[in-house]
């Protein structure tokens, strides 16, 4: 199952506002793999997602991250995105006045430019967006609205996945995309994620609950406790966590 190494995190420690959040994290993701990162609140799950995307304010104090053979931490956020790294935000930002379609198109063209491809054809682009919108059950009015402007929580999450489907990332990091979704929306989001699964793509699912993993079945499950991975396993680990609670792992890691 495992392909070539895509992402290797070695002994990563990260501070936010002087407080150490990640405390020596190791993780290896190969192409084609889906990894779930689980853990109790405050264990550092979202920090990991943000550090991967390059959000300012996260200070890497030691360790390194290699992505596609390159030093990821040396790349600006926009360069990481163009190299196929996608962050699905836990709290997608509303940007009134910047149109959804504009953002999708600008993002896609930035990536294509990086790969030496011409700008996407306007008609083909719109056809592509409409097709993905259908899959994500997003209404037509979306096309004329500002980015996430006035969207409900569920709509914002579906929009994240829509963006992911249009951009077809090599590595998707989904930060609690399942939080706040009802079961129908969760299924739609899961269908979106599954539609992108391929031997050429990898996915890091950051989640608090194993519920999403019933629909997007991961190859590996890791449990993050106090800033490092305390336990790894297959899907069975998520089920066991569900039964026994995080205290089971937290206690073992202490």
């Amino acid at each position: 199952m495992s392909g070539t190494p895509l992402l290797t995190i070695h002994d990563l420690t990260v501070s936010v506002g002087g407080k150490q959040i990640l405390t020596g994290l190791n993780l290896a993701v190969a192409t084609g793999e889906v990894h779930a990162i689980m853990g109790p609140n405050g264990s550092g799950k979202s920090t990991l997602a943000h550090v991967l995307a390059g959000r300012p304010g996260y200070e890497v104090t030691s360790g390194n991250i290699v992505y596609q053979g390159r030093d990821l931490l040396a790349l600006a956020p926009e360069e990481r995105a163009r190299q196929g790294l996608f962050l699905g935000f836990q709290y997608p930002v509303e940007i009134p006045g910047v149109n959804n379609v504009y953002l999708l198109k600008a993002a896609l063209n930035a990536q294509r430019k990086e790969r030496g491809l011409p700008e996407v054809d306007a008609f083909e682009f719109l056809a592509l967006v409409r097709e993905k919108m259908k899959l994500m059950q997003i209404e037509d009015s979306f096309l004329s609205r500002g980015v996430n402007e006035g969207f409900s929580g569920g709509e914002k999450k579906r929009n994240e996945i829509l963006q992911m489907l249009v951009l077809e990332p090599t590595l998707a990091v989904l930060d609690e995309t399942d939080s706040g979704l009802d079961i129908d929306a969760l299924k739609v989001v899961a269908a979106g994620v599954n539609s992108l699964r391929s031997p050429a793509r990898s996915c890091l699912l950051v989640t608090h609950y194993q519920r999403l993993l019933e629909y997007v079945v991961p190859d590996f499950v890791h449990v993050l406790v106090r800033g490092r991975i305390a336990r790894s396993g297959d899907r069975g680990l998520a089920l066991e966590l569900e039964r026994r609670g995080y205290d089971w792992v937290s206690g073992a890691a202490a």
Partner: peptide, 9 residues
């Protein structure tokens, strides 16, 4: 950051 994370310069 949201726009940068989508690849816009």
């Amino acid at each position: 950051f949201y726009l940068l994370a989508r690849g816009l310069d």
